[in-house]
């Protein structure tokens, strides 16, 4: 066994910043593009300081180290700069673009799914597109209908796109490093509610391989597959259930494309029960996809119907009580588990 790397406590946000810094240090072709990722371009008194470092401060400090040639503020032109990142990726750079909120994908989707994601296939395997698109997802801060969606299911649906969805600081760092080093187009979904959450993060430059789920809690009575922030809701539910003698196994797929089928199937083979918790809208979603996987290949191991705990088939409401109702809660998850155990 390899000695585990030393760790420090960091926020999810700091872990992402650190991964970007490592990737930029190790590879001069890594460039960042996005709106106000430095901020204050051409403002005399800032010289080479950033004004914002991104709307949440995730890219703060990087322009000081790497300069404005590698940390490029863009105009508000998502089709333009996401497309440029895709084109640059196809020709020798390894760009990391920031789509400020995933809800804005409508402004640039052609460049992602009809261009970047299909180059390799359409060109007979003679091209690659090593671009990472970081974006913010999730409800919980009353950002309302056009700044609160998850929408990773849309991208998971599309061949040629890899989908990475970290739930902890350590996963955020390791997965972002792998995403950037990966030679395919990767969507990297950061949950805005998690930016301030803390956890132990390994030192060093190791990535976490894409396509490997993580068992966040072991248990024998029910498998809960949860995504992004829902991992934490599921872990709270599991604590409550444990007091009642129900031991839930909580699985974080960490990447939805590729999906670690085997970890999910073997957990269900052990617990015989499956609940999927997903903050995305429920139709044609990550949740229904995982349910279909287990119905198809794990049906014989099930002792109860597969249950889904998801957001409703609506946009995200603004009003705080409604928004809270919209997001799956630990209570709702625990109730559903009790129904089938």
């Amino acid at each position: 066994m390899v000695a585990a790397a030393a760790t420090r406590t960091m926020t999810y946000q700091q872990a992402i910043t650190e991964a970007l810094q490592i990737a930029m240090r190790e590879d001069p072709t890594v460039v960042l593009l996005g709106e106000d990722i430095a901020g204050g371009a051409m403002v005399d008194h800032l010289v080479n300081d950033d004004a914002w470092g991104g709307p949440m401060g995730v890219t703060k400090g990087l322009v000081q180290e790497f300069g404005r040639n590698r940390v490029l503020d863009t105009p508000i032109t998502e089709a333009g700069f996401i497309g440029a990142a895709v084109g640059a990726a196809a020709t020798g750079l390894r760009p990391v673009a920031e789509l400020m909120f995933v809800d804005f994908f409508g402004c640039c989707m052609d460049q992602i799914f009809d261009q970047g994601a299909k180059f390799r296939y359409m060109f007979g395997g003679k091209a690659k597109c090593p671009v990472t698109i970081r974006t913010q997802i999730g409800a919980g801060v009353s950002a309302a209908g056009q700044h609160s969606g998850c929408h990773y299911s849309v991208f998971t649906h599309m061949p040629g796109i890899k989908c990475v969805i970290p739930s902890t600081p350590a996963d955020a760092k390791g997965l972002l490093l792998s995403a950037i080093r990966d030679d395919d187009l990767v969507m990297f979904f950061e949950n805005k509610v998690l930016y301030g959450t803390k956890g132990e993060v390994p030192e060093g430059e190791d990535g976490i391989p894409l396509g490997v789920a993580d068992i966040k809690r072991e248990g024998d009575d029910v498998t809960i597959v949860a995504i992004s922030r829902m991992v934490h809701q599921a872990l709270s539910a599991a604590e409550a259930l444990s007091a009642e003698g129900i031991e839930a196994e909580v699985i974080d797929p960490r990447t939805l494309s590729p999906l670690d089928d085997e970890t999910i199937l073997s957990s269900v083979a052990k617990t015989h029960r499956l609940v999927i918790v997903d903050e995305d809208n429920p139709r044609c979603s990550a949740a229904t996809d995982i349910a279909a996987l287990v119905a198809d290949r794990g049906f014989d191991t099930l002792d109860a119907p597969i249950k889904l705990v998801t957001a409703p088939h609506t946009p995200v409401p603004f009003s705080p009580p409604l928004e809270q109702f919209y997001v799956p809660s630990p209570e709702r998850i625990a109730d559903v588990v009790r129904e089938i155990v």
Partner: peptide, 16 residues
């Protein structure tokens, strides 16, 4: 404020 008496019943907020 996201109240039911809002012009969008509190479902849109400032930006909508």
């Amino acid at each position: 404020m996201g109240k039911s008496t809002g012009v969008c019943k509190g479902k849109g907020g400032s930006m909508h």
